[in-house]
Amino acid sequence: MAAEGSIDALGQFQLETSLGALGASVHFTQSNLMMLIAAGLILGLLYFGMRPKAIVPGRLQALAELAYDGVHGMCVDQIGHEGKKFFPFIFTLFTFILLGNLLGLLPFSFTYTSHIAVTFALALTVIVLVTVVALSIHGLHFFSYFFPAGAPKLLAPLIIPVEIISYLSRPVSLSIRLFANMVAGHVMFEVFASFIVMMAAAGSFGMLGAVGPLALNVVLVGFELLVAFLQAYVFSILTCIYLHDAVHLH
């Protein structure tokens, strides 16, 4: 990990095959494994959480209801009444990203949201859905989105490309935000953890000094928990905002 004066902060994002020879033969990576675990945990939470059907919910049921209610409220608040149609999509997106961020904080685990391939694929799904929804509701009128009403016609050659680029930059900014946050957090973990090992190797005085980065890492775990929730929330609320634009088209 911390080989003589160098810190390998990015090695943790290396993809490796998992599940032994079977996984290796189909290139099933640890990232895919974590995705399956996340999906299983979400389904398990909803199935086992809601099975008691208690009027006064237990812990698991309260968690499931809280997640459901929270995302449902977000959909209706941001998109409006039509938001209920998109609730399953937003809920899946939110829980999948949240579980990815949270599972990545466990030792020996892997953060699949730290790969731009994953976040960009998610963002691409969002933007394709948004465009399809806008086209199906408004038809060709959708293209008026790229030229705000009341703008001088003379500026059209300038405004339309800028608006198109601005529209196309949505998936990029959506994916970069999530990916960069996760990578930055995990790189910080790695760097400070390397400091602990390096200082501890420098004798008893360094052992005392290693308490500093250790304490910092402990604080960082709490901060990363916040970031995990925040980024999942930001991703899904921005999806809601884009869907609002698609449905109402101002």
Binding site: I165, S166, L168, S173, I176, A180
Partner: peptide
């Protein structure tokens, strides 16, 4: 600040790659 940075960067990436 982070959001502004990401927005500026992503639009630039899209423009440049386009």
């Amino acid at each position: 600040g982070l959001r502004v940075g990401v927005e500026l960067l992503s639009a630039l990436i899209v423009g440049a790659s386009l």
